[in-house]
Design a protein around this nucleic acid. Sequence first.
DNA 1: CATATGGCTCAAC
DNA 2: TGTTGAGCCATAT
Length: 123
Amino acid sequence: MGAVKLSGDNYDRIYAVVRRIPRGHVATYGQIADLAGLDGRARQVGYAMRTLTIEGVPWHRVVNARGQISARAEPGSDLIQRQLLESEGVVFDAADRLKLEDYRWRPKMDGRPRRRPRAQDSL
DNA sequence: CATATGGCTCAAC
DNA sequence: TGTTGAGCCATAT
């Protein structure tokens, strides 16, 4: 029968990518989405993290594009994330940010097309 | 099926 | 540097 595309499939892909983030490194939501073949759907990565229930996924290594830990529904969870990262050697500055230039995970990807630029109305 | 949100992101101010 | 607005689209209700 025709394969029915389940949304959970995307989650698995996201989790698979997150699992590959090396210790002491981080990746942005957009980056995860990109690597998971869901370019441009950074928000869904956040959703995947929010509904994350399985273990073995280093969700704490996922931060937003500013190198900051995003506030979420559950208060205190962001602090836990920061502590986990610090325990891996990641250092935050006074603005609670980490240096993406230093910690960003760079998997092998040659000439992979960046996600398409948003159409701009006028400039 | 229609609305409302959201662990985002980019560009412009 | 921080703020604001708008785009994006899967989940939730």
